[in-house]
Design a binder for these strands. Sequence first.
DNA 1: AACCAGGAGACAT
DNA 2: ATGTCTCATGGT
Length: 207
Amino acid sequence: MRAVMEALSRAIPDPGVWWPADTRFEMIAGAVLTQNTSWAGAEKAVGNLKKADLLTVRNLSAADPELIRQAIVPCGYWRTKTLYLKEICAWFAENDAAAPAMDDASLRASLLGVRGVGEETADDIILYAYRRGTFIYDAYARRMLRAVGWGEYKTYAQARRSADSAIRGERFTVEEYSVLHGLIVQAGKDARKAGGWDAYRRSVLCL
DNA sequence: AACCAGGAGACAT
DNA sequence: ATGTCTCATGGT
């Protein structure tokens, strides 16, 4: 995987800041808001919440759902995401302070217990908000894994089950995992324009 | 104008 | 444990 990462770094010299957020809570809210929608839409929603001063645990917990709804319309699924934001607020208020002392597995299990937080969102939060080394097995990553011969996985859990021990064995740092995820997503977008991952792997990554 | 984006939950099989 | 449906909006 490290060879893949180096090839990706060469192909994408400036990946940019992958997960921009001013605070940990903002990052977590963004993780929920971007579910199955473009980052552009989630970014607008985040901006609207910020403008309404709703992007703090305190204010969002107390906020009228109708106000939240209006702010997050641009990222879609506003009915469910309004509920999800309330849920994650409750989790954050209750667990954020203790989170740093929790071991990785417990933190992940705790996050997965929240309505609206599935495996991918949990791992996004674990990596980008709590800074723990974690590989994100999202759809982009799974397409990449298939293209470079790491196996074909239909679901997040499947990929994680079968590939995680090998990837963890490479001892990536938190910073590397963060960059890697950004590189993989950018590569996925570039690959589509280049005519698919196989073509991209050959002609751009030279792998 | 179908297609898909930093997915997850409910439910049936 | 694994499929299928639904949820909403915005850009190609």
